[in-house]
Computed example of a mutant assay.
Amino acid sequence: MAGPTRKPFPERRIYRTPKATVDAFWYVVRTYNDEYVNRWLDEHPSDKAFLLDLYRQRQKQRRAP
Rank of each mutant, 00 (worst) to 15 (best):
M1P: 00
G3K: 05
G3L: 09
T5I: 05
R6P: 01
K7C: 03
K7W: 09
P8I: 07
P8F: 02
F9L: 13
F9M: 14
F9T: 08
F9C: 05
F9N: 12
F9P: 01
P10I: 06
E11A: 15
E11S: 14
R13C: 03
R13Y: 03
R13P: 01
I14P: 00
I14M: 07
I14T: 07
Y15V: 02
Y15K: 02
R16T: 14
T17F: 10
T17Q: 07
P18W: 12
K19T: 10
K19R: 04
T21F: 10
D23F: 05
D23Y: 00
D23C: 01
D23N: 04
A24L: 13
F25D: 00
F25A: 04
Y27F: 12
V29E: 04
V29H: 01
R30L: 11
R30H: 07
T31S: 13
T31V: 08
Y32E: 15
E35I: 13
Y36K: 15
Y36R: 13
Y36C: 08
V37N: 02
N38L: 12
N38P: 00
R39P: 00
R39M: 10
W40A: 02
W40H: 08
W40T: 12
W40L: 14
D42M: 07
E43D: 15
E43K: 15
H44Y: 15
H44W: 14
H44R: 15
H44P: 04
H44D: 10
P45S: 02
P45I: 12
P45K: 03
S46A: 15
K48R: 15
K48C: 03
F50A: 07
F50I: 10
L51Q: 05
L51W: 14
L51F: 11
L52Y: 12
L52P: 01
D53S: 10
D53M: 10
D53R: 09
D53F: 10
Y55C: 03
R56T: 14
R56Y: 10
R56E: 12
R56G: 01
R56V: 15
Q57N: 04
R58T: 06
R58N: 09
R58F: 06
R58Q: 10
R58P: 01
Q59N: 05
K60F: 06
Q61C: 02
Q61V: 00
Q61P: 00
R63H: 06
R63I: 01
R63E: 12
R63A: 05
R63V: 00
R63N: 07
P65I: 00
P65Y: 02
P65Q: 05
P65K: 09
P65V: 03
